[in-house]
């Protein structure tokens, strides 16, 4: 695994992998690798929360273990489950042998009967630490947060039949949340916290130039100006960076070099995703284009 001596090295690494991170995000990431605290990233959809963890894993040269949260997650699907069929078979096989009940019990609750789920896998990983991404933790039930507490503070997992398993190499944990609900304070206090905002105009142009190299300087400027002013309106779903990129690619595919009303009407579906937002766009069309054209 690689280590980073300072923020500059981390910044350079992220840039090399095509992720233009704001400076304020790099410090918490740096602290994540040094203090060993989990990092909770919150922010609107499409600002690159998940990507951060992926790039971090790539940069450190370690495996990424991802747990996508959803309603109804429980211990059995995230931490461990016993292989019940195998246990039943083992009991049957041992019936004829003269093994004592205690030894059979020890046997069937051994590691070979344990099915490791992502969280346990992150803790028991043999060759160095991993990056553990717990994605969209706000989608999971509140009960699930309680399971996470032990893992996040001490990097250990307790299995009643086996005992407590402590991580030999504490994983680097990144949690993301879209903030569809408030997470518990207990969870948040175990984490470093960072709110990822939409990028500044300058940073967004940089991202655009990097991801869509064919784009002209002028078009990039207009696209970013317009998207940035769109985010200032009261929209249901303000466009994220992903939408900016989609839109720029769409404009290029259509062979367009500048923005006007007709172009915007034809391609608005790349930016906005609901009829209410279309209506807002319609009412602000003139001023938006004027601002982007300057």
């Amino acid at each position: 695994m690689k280590r980073f001596s300072d923020l500059e090295a981390l910044d350079a690494g992220f840039r090399r992998l095509g992720y233009m991170a704001e400076r304020s995000l790099l410090t918490p990431l740096f602290l994540l690798t040094r203090l060993g605290r989990p990092l909770l990233l919150e922010g609107h959809a499409g600002v690159g929360k998940t990507e951060t963890a992926k790039v971090l894993a790539q940069l450190l040269g370690v495996e990424l273990i991802r747990l996508q949260c959803h309603e109804g997650l429980d211990v059995n699907s995230t931490i461990y489950e016993w292989n019940y069929q195998k246990q039943l078979l083992a009991i049957k096989l041992h019936e004829k042998s003269d093994a004592s009940p205690e030894s059979i019990e020890r046997h069937i609750f051994g590691p070979e009967f344990l099915l490791e789920r992502p969280l346990l896998r992150a803790v028991t990983h043999k060759d160095g630490p991993v990056v553990l991404l717990i994605d969209e933790v706000d989608r999971a039930d509140e009960e699930f947060e309680a399971f996470l507490l032990e893992l996040l503070s001490d990097f250990q997992i307790t299995i009643p039949e086996v005992g407590t398993i402590t991580a030999t190499h504490p994983p680097f944990v990144v949690l993301t949340s879209n903030r569809t609900r408030e997470l518990s304070d207990a969870l948040k206090r175990r984490c470093l916290y960072h709110w990822i905002d939409y990028p500044s105009a300058e940073r967004e142009r940089e991202i655009l130039r990097h991801k869509v190299p064919q784009i002209t300087e002028d078009l990039a400027r207009q696209v970013v100006e317009l998207v940035q002013s769109l985010r200032g309106l009261q929209l249901e779903k303000p466009p994220g960076v992903a939408e900016t990129l989609d839109w720029a690619i769409a404009l290029l595919a259509l062979g367009l070099t500048g923005l006007d009303e007709e172009v915007l009407q034809a391609t608005k579906g790349c930016l906005l995703k609901s009829t209410e937002d279309f209506r807002v766009l319609q009412s602000q069309l003139g001023s938006l284009l004027a601002a982007a054209g300057d």
Binding site: L7, S24, R189
Partner: peptide, 24 residues
């Protein structure tokens, strides 16, 4: 960070102490 990089010092403390966007 204190002597080396003041902005990073602020960012670091912010991520340690804050629990929400509002607190930031």
């Amino acid at each position: 960070f204190l002597c080396a990089d003041f902005a990073a010092f602020r960012d670091g403390l912010r991520s340690l102490y804050c629990l929400s966007q509002e607190e930031c």
